[in-house]
Design a protein around this nucleic acid. Structure first.
Length: 259
DNA sequence: ATGGTCGTCTCACGA
């Protein structure tokens, strides 16, 4: 089965591209971030017409996450428990497979704006709560995948110009420690584990012709639990949608599981 | 040179 993540930066604008992409690729579950639409504007019918179901957590203007899937999800969890937050950044659901229950989460981790900002303090607090939640979640669901926009480039290979990004959000030691803490829990960074030497950028700034210069970052990740990792046969970045007319600034990351 | 470009109930703010 194939599971993907895509920060679409407005599902209203990107819906035709999402539908095209789902029809071109045999993806079982697509994790979306930055829907930027309220719950009553979620385009469920358009997705149902091409054979998908969905669970979502939206809000007007900002944030918003969804799970778009061929099979229905159960035990849907919206946002982090024990972390009061009006920003809709997380949704998780359980899918029945022949190998047993598979838990899937779609995460839109905070951007952080700048290292000396209040939003960075919020980012650090959010990751603390995310870590605590995942520790419990992985005990409950050994087969767990957590895909999304982490807004962290875990190492210098994930950065087109590490010098230029020094002291900026996405690459700071504090952020990287949070990402490493997730790996220390047993999660595997699927793309990096399968492709140790490929930068695998997933985001390019709209400004300064960043995509044309390949001036990107790898900030969208698929973390696979220890128990599931032997079944993760590959992971890749699909750069094609970034070349679309009116593209998202992010492009999809995909994992293939042999379950 | 700290610029630029998107998206949003837009002329400000978040990314």
């Amino acid at each position: 089965m194939k599971i993907a993540t895509w920060n679409v930066n407005s599902l209203r604008v990107r819906l035709p591209q999402v539908i095209d992409w789902l029809q071109q690729h045999d993806v079982d579950i697509l994790c979306l971030q930055e829907l930027k639409l309220p719950d009553d504007k979620f385009p469920l019918e358009a997705l149902q017409e091409i054979g998908y179901q969905a669970a979502w957590a939206g809000q007007p203007t900002y944030n918003g996450v969804a799970l778009v899937s061929k099979l229905p999800g159960t035990e849907v969890q919206r946002n982090l428990p024990d972390f009061e937050d009006p920003q809709q950044r997380l949704i998780a659901a359980t899918y029945e497979t022949e190998a047993g229950p598979l838990r899937v989460a779609s995460a839109y981790c905070p951007n952080g704006e700048a290292l000396d900002s209040d939003k960075f303090i919020y980012k650090m607090a959010w990751f603390e709560a995310f870590h605590s939640w995942l520790a419990k979640e992985q005990k409950k669901y050994p087969q767990l995948v957590v895909l999304g926009d982490y807004n962290i480039a875990p190492a210098d290979i994930d950065v087109h110009d590490p010098k230029r990004w020094e002291g900026k959000v996405h690459t700071s030691p504090e952020e990287r420690e949070h990402f490493q803490a997730l790996l220390q829990m047993g999660f595997v960074d699927a793309f990096r584990a399968h492709h140790p030497d490929d930068p695998g950028f997933s985001w390019w700034d709209y400004r300064r012709r960043a995509f044309a210069r390949d001036a990107g970052l790898r900030i969208d990740h698929a973390l696979v639990s220890q128990a599931l990792w032997p079944h993760c046969v590959d992971a890749w970045v699909d750069k094609d949608p970034r070349s679309n007319t009116q593209p998202s600034d992010h492009t999809p990351v995909v994992i293939q599981l042999s379950i």
